[in-house]
Nucleic acid binder design. Structure first.
Lengths: 343, 343
DNA sequence: GTCTGACTTGTAAACGATTACAAGAACGAT
DNA sequence: ATCGTTCTTGTAATCGTTTACAAGTCAGAC
C-alpha cells in the first residue's frame, strides 16, 4: 500500500479531512475527536506531504544556503551560524553548491522561483549585472553574504576587507616585518577585488611597497601552492640553496594571503624551500576558519566575521520573509585579528 | 503582480493550459503554437512551480545527502562525488546536516516521507534499531554510506576499515615502528567501532601490542587534541623535559588515528611537546581527506575510498529510484594507503 | 462526398493538503 | 418552548501543475 493520505486517515478515524487537518495543526477540537485522529495517524504511519502543504499555504519552511565551494572551510563556519539561526526559527536549512561560475549562480537564483524554498542566502564569488538582475527579480527573499552594489537594492552583509588588510599589515609591522608580499585569489571575484584594493590601501597608508604580488587561479589549497611557486621562484630554493643564502630571505619576510587555504598552500611551499615560519617568513591568512587553527604552525588569520556574517544574513532573511516591504539593509561586519604562531 | 501561473501564460498566448504544459515539456505541438507559448513565457517571466509539479508527478528531482558534521573534510570529498553523479543524472543535490545524535537522523529519515526529495544518501554516525526501522519503512529510496546490518535490507556502500587498519599497521612496521598507539573516535559510533575492531585484528595479526589507546569524544580536531593530551600525558612533556628524555620517546613511536581531524589534533599535541613527526613519532590518519594533504607535515592517511563510496552510493540510489524491486546491494570499497611525510 | 486515421488542441479531473463557509449541536437566557 | 450564541464538524473550493479523455481538424482513400 502506498503512502497514506489525509483522506485515508479521515476514513480510518471516521471523521472528515478537515478535522484531521485541524487536529494536526493544533486547532481547537474535542479531545475525543483528537484522540481518534491521533490513533489513526499513528496506526497508518501518516506523515503530511510537504509538497501539497506548501502548494496550498505558499510556504515550504525551507531556506537555502548557496555556496561556491564546499571545500572552502570558511563556508563551514558560515553554514553553522546560518543553520543555528534558521533552525531556531523553525526552518530547515538546505545547502546547495553553485560552482565558481556566475552563470550557475544566476541559474540558481532564477530557479528559486520554482518554489524550492522560502528564501536564499547566497555568497556569490563573481557578480555581474545578470546576477544582480536575477536577485532583484527573484520571487523569494534573497540576502547576499558578500558585496554587491547598493543599487541592487538587496539585503547584504559583508566583510570589511580593507580594514582587515590594515589589521594584517599593521600586525606585521609591529612584528618588525616590512618586506611584505601578497597572495590574492582571482581579482575578478568579489573577495579578490576587495582584498586587492584593501591591500593596496593598507600598504600605502603605512608607506610600504609590496615585494611581491601574485594572483592565484582560485581560492584553493592547490592554487595556493602554485602561487607559492610563482612567488618564491620554482628553482631558486632547490636543494643545495635551501633558504640559507641571503637571496632566500632578503626578498620577503611576510606573506599576506587572501584566505586560509591559500595561506596554508604558501606555508607548504615555504616549508619545501626550508624557509621557517614565522622565523624567516611570517604568514597571515584570512577568514580565520577552522583550518587556521588546524594548520601547522597555527595560522594567524584575519577574522572577517564569517560566523557573524552568517548569523546576521540569516536574521536579515528571516526579517524580510516576515516583512517584504522593509528597506534593504546593508550590514558591514568588522574584522578582528586572531593571532597565532605563524607570525 | 504576483508570480505568473500557467493559466496566465495560457491566457496571454491564447491557448489552453494543457498546451502550455505540453510545449514546456517538449511534447509534440505545431511550431506556431510553440512559438506563441514561448513568447508568452518569455514575456511574463514564467517559471513553473516545482511544488505543484512534483505534487502531480510524484517526483521532485531533488536528492538529499545527509551528513553528521559539515566540518569534517571527509564529507566534502564524498559530497563532491555524489554531486557529480546525481547532477549528471538531472537531479539537484541538497545537503542537510543531522548532528551527531541518532534521534536527529531518525527524524530526518522519517521526514523524507514529507516528500522533500526523491531519495536520500545518509552517512550515519550512530545506528540503532529505530534508525534501521525508519530506513526500512522510508517511503523514498535510501542508501546508507556506512555500515548497517544486512537485515536492514537496504543498499549500502561501506569502507573496509579492518583492511585499512592492516595497511596502516603494516606500513608502520615496514618503517620500523612497533610501539603503536591508537586514537579512536567514540566507539559507540559506526566508524568508531569498526576501527576499534580493525585495529585490534591488525595488531594481533602482526603480533603487536598497542602501547596506548584512547577514545576521543568525537571525530573533531578539538577532540583530537584532547585525546593527545590524554595519550601523551598532560604534564609529562612540559618545558624542561621536552621530549628528549627516554620516557618521552620510548613509550610510543607511532600513532594511528581514526580520521584525519584526530590525526592533525594529535600532531599538534606532539608538536607542543617537541616531538618531531615523523622522526620521533609517525602519525597515520584515515579518510585521506583534503586536510591530509594540507596538514603539515602532510599526513599519511588510509584512503577509505570516500570519493568512490560517494559515487557508488549515488549510483545505487539512482538505480533504486529506477527500479525499487531490485535486491539490496552491499558494496564494499577497498582502501588504499596514501603515503605522505608524516610516516 | 463520406469515411478513416492521424494529429492537434481543449476540457476537466486528478495530486494532497488547507481553509472559508455552512450546517448542526449544545446550552443558557428569556 | 423559543431564540440566539458559541462551539464543533463537515462540505467543497483552492493552490498550480500534469494528463486522460474527448473533440475537433485535416488529408487522403474510396
Amino acid at each position: 500500500m502506498s503512502r497514506p493520505t489525509i483522506a485515508r486517515v479521515a476514513r480510518a478515524a471516521g471523521v472528515s479531512v478537515a478535522s484531521v487537518s485541524r487536529v494536526l495543526n493544533g486547532l481547537p477540537a474535542t479531545e475525543e475527536m483528537a484522540e481518534r485522529v491521533r490513533r489513526a495517524v499513528e496506526e497508518l504511519g501518516y506523515v503530511p506531504d510537504a509538497r501539497a502543504r506548501s502548494l496550498k499555504v505558499g510556504r515550504t519552511f525551507q531556506l537555502t544556503l548557496a555556496v561556491a565551494d564546499v571545500g572552502n572551510p570558511v563556508y563551514v563556519t558560515m553554514m553553522r551560524a546560518v543553520e543555528e539561526v534558521v533552525s531556531a526559527a523553525g526552518y530547515r536549512l538546505v545547502v546547495t553548491t553553485t560552482g565558481p561560475d556566475v552563470v550557475d549562480e544566476v541559474a540558481l537564483v532564477r530557479g528559486m522561483a520554482r518554489g524550492y524554498a522560502d528564501g536564499l542566502v547566497i555568497s556569490p564569488l563573481r557578480v555581474d549585472d545578470d546576477l544582480i538582475k536575477s536577485i532583484r527579480e527573484c520571487d523569494v527573499p534573497v540576502v547576499v553574504a558578500g558585496n554587491v552594489p547598493a543599487r541592487a537594492g538587496v539585503d547584504t552583509v559583508r566583510a570589511n576587507s580593507p580594514k582587515g588588510m590594515l589589521l594584517a599589515v599593521e600586525h606585521l609591522l609591529a612584528k618588525g616585518r616590512r618586506r611584505i608580499a601578497f597572495v590574492n585569489g582571482p581579482v575578478d571575484t568579489v573577495p579578490g577585488s576587495a582584498r586587492a584594493k584593501g591591500f593596496r590601501e593598507a600598504m600605502k597608508a603605512n608607506e610600504l611597497q609590496a615585494v611581491g604580488e601574485v594572483e592565484a587561479a582560485d581560492f584553493t589549497f592547490a592554487a595556493g601552492r602554485a602561487a607559492g611557486k610563482e612567488l618564491l621562484g620554482e628553482s631558486a630554493y632547490e636543494a643545495g640553496s635551501r633558504g640559507d643564502g641571503p637571496a632566500a630571505t632578503a626578498r620577503l619576510d611576510a606573506v599576506i594571503c587572501a584566505n586560509d587555504l591559500l595561506a596554508v598552500g604558501i606555508m607548504h611551499e615555504l616549508g619545501a624551500r626550508g624557509l621557517a615560519v614565522p622565523a624567516e617568513v611570517a604568514v597571515i591568512g584570512m577568514d580565520d576558519s577552522e583550518l587556521a587553527e588546524q594548520s601547522f604552525p597555527p595560522l594567524t588569520s584575519v577574522n572577517l566575521g564569517s560566523a557573524e556574517r552568517g548569523r546576521r544574513a540569516a536574521e536579515l532573511l528571516l526579517a524580510r520573509i516576515e516583512d517584504d516591504s522593509r528597506p534593504p539593509r546593508r550590514i558591514v561586519v568588522q574584522p578582528t585579528l586572531s593571532v597565532r604562531s605563524s607570525t
